[in-house]
């Protein structure tokens, strides 16, 4: 029996659900949102303070650059400030922040222009070809961990926005399907299918890092 069968994965759903309360549960931001809507701008500043760290993390994942993430973060909270009245209580305020941030990230990517995209693809190919070893087995065998992470981050950026968003929210941010569906305003089934497609696409992009050698593969099947 091969290793994967013996090592049946433990459900991660419980961890995800614990990390994020159900939308029906009391939204911890509602009091601040109400005060802000009543004209208390310091309440909005408190909301920014509460959400900016997590939103920044999401934007770095989506954009692959701290500088761009900082710009998108500002755009996110400016949009929230200007259009916060559109927030309905169907979802938690934190979900709404994520939705605005995702839109900011996607708009930002679109505005980068074709040349920038070409340069990024070129850099990605060069990095994949020149900077990394052919062996999939060896981060410890010579690749600086930072380079490895940079490569993974680049390949995430190379995914289409439709796939990158769900993957980042699920695998890096740890959101459950339902929450992602609310952030992206998509049916849960679509979210699930996009996550699976994104994982497959990313696995193929990282195949030199994740595939086993022929010998090991043969061994695993026996």
């Amino acid at each position: 029996m091969s290793e994967p069968i013996l090592d049946r994965p433990r459900p991660v759903a419980a961890r995800r659900d614990a990390a994020l309360p159900e939308p029906q549960a009391q939204d911890p931001d509602l009091e601040l949102v109400d005060r802000w809507r009543d004209g208390d701008e310091s309440a909005f500043a408190s909301l920014v303070r509460r959400h900016h760290g997590r939103t920044f993390g999401l934007l770095v994942r989506m954009l692959g650059s701290r500088e761009e993430a900082e710009d998108a973060l500002q755009e996110t909270f400016l949009n929230l400030h200007r259009h916060g009245h559109r927030f309905r209580r169907e979802a938690r305020f934190g979900t709404f922040v994520y939705r605005v941030a995702m839109n900011a990230a996607l708009n930002r990517r679109r505005s980068l222009g074709r040349r920038r995209a070409q340069l990024e693809r070129l850099a990605s190919r060069q990095a994949a070809g020149d900077d990394l070893p052919q062996s999939p087995r060896g981060p410890e065998a010579g690749v600086v961990q930072g380079e490895l992470r940079a490569r993974v981050q680049r390949e995430i950026q190379a995914l289409s926005p439709n796939l990158r968003g769900p993957l980042v929210l699920y695998d890096l941010e740890g959101l459950p399907y339902g929450e992602i569906a609310r952030v992206l305003e998509l049916p849960e089934g679509t979210v699930k299918s996009r996550i699976h497609r994104a994982r497959r696409a990313l696995r193929e992009r990282l195949i030199d890092l994740v595939s086993e050698s022929d010998d090991e593969s043969e061994g695993a099947g026996q």
Binding site: P4, R66, L148, R149, V152, D171, R199, L202, S211
Partner: peptide, 16 residues
């Protein structure tokens, strides 16, 4: 196996 290794790489990314 590939999927699991890929997920390990993803989860190894530090939080920004």
């Amino acid at each position: 196996g590939e999927l699991r290794r890929m997920l390990e790489l993803l989860h190894d990314l530090p939080a920004a």
